[in-house]
Every structure is written in structure tokens, then in C-alpha cells.
């Protein structure tokens, strides 16, 4: 009766289900990353403006998103909005909205950090060469900021892929939840299935995140 748990992976459509779960994970996280990066870049530039009003707004937004656990944000977007305004967002939409808001805040702060890390003498030299403010920004600041941002952005991307496992709490069945379903459905006959299922999930996450790291290294080399 206490059979090897590896069999569980090949029962019915179990393996396919895990792959489908991974698709759900990647779909939500990649859409969020793709939207967060451009939005975060604009937000980061917005944060460096020397206007007290814009500073206050960006500060409040950043701190609010940072302090709130993502789980709370998900509950607010999925259940809270329905309770307060009667709008019923689908689980997919709520999850994407929350991860875009979070990703934009985090990305914005990275961009701000990269922008202010450009030494002042770079600006001075550019002005001395007769460049305008806009030219300095485009030709001197942006290229250097970009290079600094690559590793940080990759870090954020992989973090977002892993954090999407929270979406199970609003009913989205992603890869981790599928794994739990498979383990649970077999927990009486195959108690050791957990090890195998989690092993496969580990591999799937690795296969999802690894190409991103490789790509980032290539980009770093090319622009470095």
C-alpha cells in the first residue's frame, strides 16, 4: 500500500495539470512584470522630480504598497472592492492589478535609486560640453541607469514569479495549488507523493526563472 510516490506524477493527467498550473503562474507574473517595468520607469522618474507635491504623492503610494502585505492587497482588490463598491473583478484581473501596483512601486524605487546614483560630475561634464538638460538625460543618464537596472529588474521579476503563489487565496489554481491538490488526493495511498510533487514544482520554478537570469547576464555583458 505504501507505494513509491513517483507514480502519482503519471496518474491521469497529473503531469499536464502541473504544467498548466505553471502556465497560470507565468501568465499572471509575466503580464504584471511587463506592465510594471515601463510604469515603474515613469514612476521612478516622477519620484526624482523636486516638486514637494509629487514627492508626497509618490512617498504615500510607495509606502502604502510596501507596508501592506501582498496578501492583504489581494483580498482588498478581490473581496474588498466588491464589498465597498459592488464591482466584482475577476480573480485574474484583481491579481494582475495588485501585482502591477506592487511591481510599479518596487520598480519605481529601483529606477529612482539608479538615477540618483549617477555622480553629479557626469551632469557637470555634460553641461560643460554644451549639452542641454534633455540631451544630458538621454545621452548620459539613461544609458548608465539602464545598465545598473538590469540585475535589479531580474531580481524583481523572479521575486514576482514566486510571489504569485499567493493568488490561490482568491481562488486561482496555479502550480503550487495543483501540487497540493495532487498530494492531497493521494495522501492515503501514496504518503510519499509530497516529496516528488514538490520536487517537480521546484524544477518547474527553476526552469521558469533560469532563462531569465541567463538573458540578464547576456544583456549585462553586452551593455556593460
Amino acid at each position: 500500500m505504501q507505494d513509491s510516490g513517483i507514480n502519482v506524477l503519471f496518474m491521469g493527467s497529473n503531469f499536464l495539470r502541473l504544467l498548466e498550473g505553471l502556465c497560470v503562474t507565468l501568465r499572471i507574473s509575466l503580464i504584471s512584470v511587463i506592465l510594471s517595468i515601463p510604469l515603474g520607469i515613469f514612476f521612478g522618474i516622477f519620484m526624482t522630480l523636486k516638486n514637494p507635491f509629487s514627492k508626497a504623492i509618490s512617498r504615500i503610494y510607495l509606502e502604502f504598497i510596501r507596508i501592506m502585505p501582498q496578501l492583504v492587497l489581494l483580498f482588498i482588490a478581490y473581496f474588498g472592492v466588491t464589498r465597498a463598491f459592488g464591482w466584482s473583478l475577476s480573480a485574474d484581473v484583481s491579481a494582475t492589478v495588485v501585482f502591477v501596483l506592487w511591481g510599479t512601486a518596487e520598480m519605481g524605487d529601483l529606477v529612482r535609486g539608479a538615477l540618483i546614483s549617477i555622480p553629479k560630475n557626469q551632469y557637470d561634464s555634460a553641461f560643460a560640453l554644451g549639452m542641454t538638460k534633455a540631451q544630458t538625460f538621454i545621452h548620459i543618464v539613461v544609458p548608465q541607469t539602464f545598465r545598473r537596472l538590469i540585475p535589479l529588474t531580474i531580481n524583481l521579476t523572479t521575486r514576482m514569479i514566486k510571489t504569485t503563489s499567493l493568488v490561490v487565496l482568491i481562488g486561482i489554481t496555479e502550480v503550487l495549488k495543483v501540487g497540493k491538490q495532487i498530494i492531497d488526493a493521494n495522501r492515503f495511498e501514496y504518503p510519499s507523493a509530497a516529496l516528488w510533487v514538490y520536487g517537480v514544482i521546484f524544477l518547474l520554478y527553476f526552469l521558469a526563472c533560469w532563462p531569465i537570469s541567463v538573458m540578464a547576464k547576456k544583456l549585462e555583458k553586452r551593455w556593460g
Binding site: L35, L89, S90
Partner: peptide
């Protein structure tokens, strides 16, 4: 890159299951 990103996001969102919301109460 920005333009591609936005387009790609739209395309990806399109292939997701677009289940609409139901009445709140």
C-alpha cells in the same frame, strides 16, 4: 521596448480566460 512590452501584455491578457464579474450581491 516600451511599446513592445505594452502590446505583448495586451496579447497575453487576451489569451487569459476572460471571465466577467457577476452581480455583487
Amino acid at each position: 521596448a516600451v511599446i513592445t512590452a505594452v502590446l505583448l501584455a495586451g496579447a497575453l491578457a487576451g489569451c487569459g480566460k476572460g471571465e466577467g464579474g457577476t452581480a455583487s450581491s
